[in-house]
Nucleic acid binder design. Sequence first.
DNA 1: ATGGTAGCGGTGCTA
Length: 259
Amino acid sequence: MKIATFNINGVKARIEALTAWLAEATPDVALLQEIKSVDEGFPRAELEDLGYQVETHGQKGFNGVAILSRLRLEDVTRGLPGDAEDVQARWIEATVTGRRAVRLCGLYLPNGNPAPGPKFDYKLAWMERMQARAAALLATEEPVVFAGDYNVIPTPRDAAHPEQWVEDALYRPETRAAFRRLCALGLTDAIRMRHPEAALYTFWDYQGLSWERNNGIRIDHLLLSPQAADLMTDCGIDSQVRGGAKPSDHVPVWIELDA
DNA sequence: ATGGTAGCGGTGCTA
């Protein structure tokens, strides 16, 4: 079972790039972030025509997450528990069953800039809520995958120029500490399990010739429960997508599970 | 060097 995460930065602007990547990469499941669309505006038919079940959690203008799956999705839930006042569409869950059932969490973690400030406070509070949800899911001892745009640069190795990020909400000590607390629950960073030392990135800014200069950061992650980590046979980053036509500023990251 | 790019939606915000 191939599971990918992709921040597509606007699903309507990206539908051609998205369908081209799906045809090439053929993931069984794609977790999308920043669809920037309400549910009614999502280009559902184009993706259903490729054989995908489509589950969306949209919002007008900003944010928004979705799951595409060629295998049947069940028990779909929308929204991160823990704050009834939070209207931002950043979390969706579903169970996908191949030879085994896997619980999927698709997430778009808040950016948090400028820091300090209310947006940074929201980011840290959101990470605390994710901590609670992850702990609850880990207690099931089932395979669980937490995939998405974390807006977290975990270590200096995850940025081409870490010194440029020291004041940024993606790299501040509080952010990195919250990410480490998540990992300390027993989650495994799929890419780092397979490639502990490599300079690998998933985002290159549109500005300043970042792609041409490989001035990237690694902020899109798949964190695996112990039972999911046991099933992983491969993983990768489709960085070539960043060089394609009308690209997102993020690229897909994927895992293969023996499930 | 106080800019620069992109999406959404129809202005300024978000990233």
